[in-house]
Design a protein around this nucleic acid. Structure first.
Length: 423
RNA sequence: GUGGGCGUAGCUCAGCUGGUAGAGCUCUCGGUUGUGGUCCGGGCGGUCGCGGGUUCGAACCCCGUCGCUCACCCCA
């Protein structure tokens, strides 16, 4: 029986891995400008870490986690998101000790048991950013601005930053009640899901996609009209700083995050070119999570973005594929050893070298050289071996030169530098 | 968990009201000595997802099954 990959997972093949590597390198570059350093945390954790942080009654915890018992009988879960692990590590390593803010990012796979669809896999990759230790709105704005700069650097055009405020423990419970009473009047006209949400998580009614609910949601009281003084002040400063940074955004009063730990600033970046799963990035402030996981009171701000979705949006221009500098063509058995030696020498001299391991006709080997997208082909045959002069062919121009086989790498470097731009 | 669409060559797909399978691309070989890309010519390649059923006959109709995909839910 042929074994194939598990439902909802994907191989990232060599021919497209450069896209991922490129995006990741830009992330490193931009994030480091803002003082963020990478952290690598385990992909599985004590199940309780996620149920406590994400929220017992969220869909993720209730029905989407890959949870199993290990051989010691402990309940283990493949991480469905990254923030919980970073917070756990932050507490475990007492990273709150130094007086500065801890700024970290991570890149890696997450796991959720859902039905796969466009832009949604069971194993998917996220880049996440966490700034831990400051309540300042400047942190919110720096992180969001960093994100926008990252997207710009990637060449993304159609993405849109939406922000909202979710208030804090002070004002949100009150708002929740206000909202429930308001929804109650419309119960007959809401979709089935929203009737359910009314009880469990009334804020979710606000971002329902059903037409009849959208209309009703417009008329419902807004969180931002029920903020307490602290939240109100914070939200105002966030907007002011976004303006100063000239970071474009829109306020979406119906924006709600799906994880329980968010408060105050919440945001999403969406794109129309993604299909139904149009959120490319989501995040916000989570000021109480560290405390809830038994750490010291630590206000934080963070986001996570979906790499598969990002890869599908980035307008990759030139192929940054790792093509060989030189492809070696060997003619006949006499050229086998000299070809091997040439490849060896050139690689040690720092060239990217590939070759054909079979000794086919020259035509077929030249075809392979062409397909490899190499810049030069080194031809070694009986004549070349006898004369001690190999042939170096420029594959873009078509011209060729003799190269002394005794000083291959230095002569090739010279040739290449004089007739073409340096490798 | 619920619904829609789809499984035919390595890839993208065609195949009429049932008559035992086709194209393009790729690959491969060649177009006189040892030179790629373009062009021209030849060739390789498919138990039509799998299992049943109807039929003289099934890629096509029916049932089941597996897989993929999109959407709902939820989320990145």
């Amino acid at each position: 029986m042929k074994i194939q990959s598990i439902r909802g997972v994907k191989d990232i093949l060599p021919e497209e891995i450069w896209k991922w590597q490129w995006i990741e390198s830009i992330a490193h570059k931009i994030f480091s400008r803002y003082g963020f350093k990478e952290i690598r945390v385990p992909i599985f954790e004590d199940t309780r870490l996620f149920s406590r942080s994400i929220g017992e009654t969220t869909d993720i915890v209730e029905k989407e986690m890959y949870t199993f018992q290990d051989r010691g009988g402990d309940s283990i879960t493949l991480r469905p998101e990254g923030t919980a692990s970073v917070v756990r590590a932050y507490i475990e390593h007492k990273m709150y000790a130094p007086p500065s803010v801890s700024k970290m990012f991570y890149i890696g796979p997450m796991f959720r048991y859902e039905r796969p669809q466009a832009g949604r896999l069971r194993q998917f990759y996220q880049i996440g950013v966490e700034a831990m230790g400051s309540p300042s709105p400047a942190v919110d704005v720096e992180v969001m601005t960093m994100l926008i700069q990252f997207f710009r650097e990637l060449g993304l055009k159609d993405s849109q930053l939406q922000i909202n405020s979710l208030g804090n423990q002070n004002c949100r419970p009150q708002y929740r009640e206000v909202l429930k009473t308001a929804i109650e009047k419309h119960l007959d006209n809401l979709c089935k899901n929203c009737i359910n949400r009314y009880e469990r998580n009334p804020l979710r009614v606000l971002d329902c996609k059903a037409e009849q609910c959208k209309e009703i949601a417009q008329s419902l009281p807004k969180m931002i009209d029920h903020l307490d003084e602290t939240s109100e002040q914070h939200f105002a400063e966030v907007r002011a700083l976004l303006d100063i940074a000239k970071t474009p955004y829109t306020i979406n009063t119906n924006l709600v995050r799906g994880l329980d730990y968010y408060n105050m600033t919440a945001f999403e970046v969406t794109s129309e070119n993604l299909g139904a799963q149009n959120a490319i990035c989501g995040g916000g402030r989570y000021d109480t999570l560290v405390e809830e996981l038994s750490g010291p009171s630590t206000p934080c701000f963070g986001f996570a973005l979906g790499l598969e979705r990002l890869v599908s949006l980035v307008p990759f221009e030139e192929e940054l594929n790792n093509n060989p500098d030189i492809f070696i063509v060997c003619l006949g058995d006499v050229a086998k050893i000299p070809g091997f030696q040439a490849a060896h020498e050139l690689r040690h001299a720092g060239f990217k070298v590939d070759r054909d391991y079979e000794t086919g006709s020259m035509k077929s080997q030249m075809r392979k050289a062409n397909k490899s997208n190499c810049r030069f082909t080194l031809i070694i045959g009986e004549n070349e071996i006898n004369s001690g002069k190999y042939i170096l062919k420029n594959m873009t121009e078509g011209d060729q030169h003799e190269i002394n086989s005794k000083s291959l790498s230095t002569e090739i470097a010279l040739q290449i530098n004089t007739i073409n731009k340096p490798l």
